[in-house]
């Protein structure tokens, strides 16, 4: 069953067309990396898919849902890592359960279990009672990823979730997304680290020149020709005994 279907999606920001004719489908169990140069419209594409833009054309299966239905279909982690108040990390993660909670606001045991699981998944046990807004940037990002995972939706969309994380946590976070894919949940994640994208994503979507330039398995997208065209770089890309290794080399 497809979790997200876009058909001829186009978005315009301040009378400037960002992209057009975007059509794609995300099925269960995928870890899709959305890559593209700065300003290609990765964030705008995700927000348009969610139906958050005031002016967009084309169809998105998520934008067609009501606000309440959408909250159970997709979790969204925006690029701006906003934590307005110094609330404890466990309360921050618990916000992911808001769409499911009864009106009384009490958190039932099964929701509590999902919150605990998300905290454990991101290795945040030691931070549970710490004020989320006073954590370091990388720790905040992990708390916000845990919040999105606690929402327990079939699809997770995250805008540059691993930017600013240390290498161990970058790898661990991509592994968290891969674990979700193994249970049939899918993730659409925008990222700039093409090495991690090559290693962890099951599929890459290259957004450039106002549309989708390539969509497929990493080895089909990270080709010399496409890299030169979209990013203007050369790269070294090999399948090694320890998995695919990708390293950008020089600016063309």
């Amino acid at each position: 069953m497809s979790l997200l279907t876009l058909r001829d999606l186009a978005a315009t920001l301040r009378n400037r067309p960002v992209f057009s004719n975007v059509s794609l489908t995300i099925d269960e169990g995928e870890l899709v990396g959305l890559i593209g140069p700065n300003g290609a419209g990765k964030t705008t594409l995700m927000r348009a898919a969610l139906g958050l833009l005031p002016r967009q054309s084309g169809q998105s299966s998520l934008a067609a849902l009501s606000t309440a239905e959408r909250a159970r279909a997709v979790a969204w982690m925006p690029q701006a890592r906003e934590i307005a108040w110094p609330i404890p990390v466990e309360r921050l993660v618990a916000l992911g359960r808001l769409p499911y909670l009864p009106l009384s606001g009490k958190i039932p045991a099964e929701d509590r279990a999902k919150i605990d699981a998300a905290i454990a998944h991101l290795g945040l046990e030691a931070f549970r009672t710490r004020a989320a807004s006073r954590l370091s940037g990388g720790e905040q990002a992990r708390a916000l990823i845990a919040r999105a995972i606690a929402q327990d939706t079939p699809l997770l969309m995250a805008d540059e979730p691993i930017a600013g994380l240390d290498p161990a946590h970058q790898i661990a976070t991509m592994q968290v997304f891969a674990d979700l894919a193994a249970t049939g949940r899918s993730t659409l994640v925008s990222l700039h680290d093409l090495g991690l994208a090559a290693r962890h994503c099951t599929r890459l979507i290259l957004l450039a020149e106002g549309g989708i330039l390539a969509d497929g398995p990493p080895q089909d997208v990270l080709t010399d020709a496409l890299l030169a065209r979209a990013f203007g770089v050369t790269a070294w890309h090999q399948h090694t005994p320890s998995g695919p290794v990708f390293q950008p080399l020089e600016v063309l």
Binding site: L52, M77, P78, A80, E82, I83, A84, L95, L144
Partner: peptide
């Protein structure tokens, strides 16, 4: 009350929380 809690995460995230 619930909406204000959700807004802790910013307007975009709050909107996708329903």
């Amino acid at each position: 009350a619930r909406g204000l809690d959700a807004l802790t995460l910013g307007e975009d995230a709050a909107e996708t929380l329903g």
